[in-house]
């Protein structure tokens, strides 16, 4: 089985996001970028499936321009066999991304698609679901455990109420939760090997897909700063304020 792992390049979660002065978006100039943490979980799971003999080849793919290649190289250094960059300078919406990934999944005849449950920049949490619908495959989202046996997979999902165990048919699109695994550290010899691994670049335009964005961003604002706290003098005063001011008890 071949596994397609979809990854996204995002602002490093350790970095404080700054909104552009004109409010048109987040300022990414010279900002530290990284692979979306949930995508790292997805890739780690693919690597473990391959190590357990459940997969032969892992393809890591991303849609984007500029330095997206850097993020794919990181995927190759973690252990993916080859990479595909669908090149565009435009920031696409989840549906457009799903269309592109459907194309890649079909071209490569993969048996499983793994993705992060959401990207930490726009928190859309849509691409995996849309991709499964477009492919007509089963979907398993927020996975914290994946077991594949023949044409079935048993998944534990992290849901609000706790853990949900489901069974899905293969092929499938699965999205990774943070608790799925702990991604490995990249080793220096693997960084060197990654340089020699194949990286295909496909121009978005050559795929003949309608990837027109349907939304327009009107305004991006920084969240309001947290208001200063109050120091109370006694437990009695605290209880009184919680009851009458905050109205939480």
């Amino acid at each position: 089985m071949k596994i397609l792992v979809c990854v996204k390049r995002v602002l490093d979660p350790q970095v404080k996001a700054r909104v552009k002065a004109d409010g048109s978006g987040v300022d990414l100039a010279n900002a530290k970028m990284t692979m979306n943490p949930f995508c790292e979980n997805a890739l780690e799971e693919a690597l473990r499936l391959r190590e357990a003999g459940a997969a032969e080849e892992i393809i890591v793919a991303s849609v984007g321009g500029g330095k997206t290649e850097e993020t794919l190289r990181h995927g190759l250094a973690m252990g993916a066999d080859r990479a595909i960059q669908v090149v565009t300078e435009e920031a696409l919406e989840p549906l457009a991304i799903a269309k592109v990934l459907k194309n890649v999944a079909e071209q490569e005849e993969v048996g499983l698609v793994l993705a992060g449950k959401q990207a930490i920049d726009d928190d859309s949490n849509q691409t995996a679901q849309m991709l499964s619908a477009l492919l007509g495959w089963s979907q398993a989202t927020f996975c914290s455990d994946i077991k594949i046996e023949g044409d079935k997979a048993t998944i534990i999902r992290e849901v609000d109420a706790g853990l949900e165990t489901i069974e899905v048919k293969m092929p499938s699109v699965m999205s990774a939760d943070l608790r799925l695994n702990e991604p490995r550290y990249v080793k220096l010899p693997d960084v060197m090997k990654a340089k020699r691994k194949p990286m295909d670049k496909i121009e978005l335009g050559s795929l003949g897909l309608d990837t027109t964005n349907r939304m327009t961003t009107l305004q991006v604002e920084e969240p309001e700063g947290r208001a200063a706290g109050v120091i109370v003098n006694s437990v009695g005063e605290l209880v009184e304020k919680l009851r009458n001011e905050a109205k939480v008890i």
Binding site: E69, E70, H74, Y185, L188, V191, A194
Partner: peptide, 15 residues
């Protein structure tokens, strides 16, 4: 360059 960035990021993660 891309490789140097990867070196820096990877070492940072271990540290």
């Amino acid at each position: 360059n891309s490789e140097q960035q990867q070196i820096s990021d990877s070492v940072e993660k271990i540290c």
